[in-house]
Design a protein around this nucleic acid. Structure first.
Length: 258
DNA sequence: ATGACCATCCCAGATGGA
């Protein structure tokens, strides 16, 4: 079973790229971030024609997350973190699919730092950490997947020294990441590729993708029971080179049958 | 060290992204 995460940077603007990649790769489950569309503009018809069912949680202009499945029913369990109000930004969606609990998330960017946006990022992070504890304690097989907007280590940034004051690489954000992982989660890509340079995002500017001036900010965290089932963890670089593409590349993991 | 590019939306230029 392949499970993917893809920050599409506008689900309607990137629809041809998304559909081409779904057709090519055929992941069973996909978490999408940055829909940038209100709920009524989610392209559900095109996604159904591609063979997927979906749930989504959008808002006008910004944010927005979705979970797609071609393997079985999507049983939604949450659409916001505990502690978030009804009017919160659309950044979290959780569902049981084919025997696994999938949490699709889009953690706030947090720039500029310091400032209210960074405070919101860290507050959101704390809510995620508290809820992740509950998910671990449930004993269920759980995957936290999405755009965490954090590069955990220097290996995850092309020029670490340029990013130390940025909200994506700030000590507070990295500390929160390691506190989350320290609950007992496994970073799937690093587990299988401990020493490789792996990026999931490249700016549009200055030929960043061609220069491989990238960041690793899209992640999969696995609950302990899933680690033995992890057989692959990859980033699809090809779609990042397509015309009218997202600034992120899709990442995916493959789990053996449980 | 800075600015570069892209999407969205009452369609122009502000805002957010990372």
């Amino acid at each position: 079973m392949k499970i993917a995460t893809y920050n599409v940077n506008g689900v309607n603007g990137r629809l041809p790229v998304l559909l081409r990649w779904l057709e090519q790769r055929q992941p069973e489950i996909v978490c999408l971030q940055e829909l940038k569309a209100p709920d009524e503009r989610f392209p559900i018809d095109a996604i159904r024609r591609a063979g997927y069912d979906a749930i989504w949680h959008g808002q006008p202009r910004w944010n927005g997350v979705a979970i797609l499945s071609r393997i079985g029913e999507i049983h939604e369990t949450r659409r916001r973190l505990p502690g978030e109000g009804e009017d919160a930004q659309s950044r979290y969606l959780e569902a049981a699919v084919n025997g696994v609990l999938i949490a699709g998330l889009y953690l706030p960017n947090g720039n500029p730092r310091p400032g209210p946006k960074f405070d919101y990022k860290m507050l959101w992070f704390e809510r995620l950490i508290a809820h992740a504890r509950e998910l671990l304690d449930s004993g269920l097989p759980v995957i936290l997947a999405g755009d965490f907007n954090v590069m955990p280590t220097e290996r995850d940034v092309y020029k670490p020294e340029r990013w130390v004051d940025d909200a994506l690489f700030a000590p507070e954000a990295r500390e929160a990441w390691f506190r989350l992982v320290g609950q007992g989660w496994t970073d799937a890509v690093r587990h299988l590729h401990p020493d490789e340079t792996v990026y999931t995002f490249w700016k549009y500017f200055r030929n960043a993708f061609v220069r491989n001036a990238g960041l690793r900010i899209d992640h999969f965290l696995l609950s302990p029971g899933l680690v033995d089932r992890l057989v692959r963890a990859e980033v699809d670089l090809e779609p990042r080179g397509w015309d009218k593409t997202s600034d992120h590349a899709p990442a995916w993991i493959e789990l053996a049958a449980g």
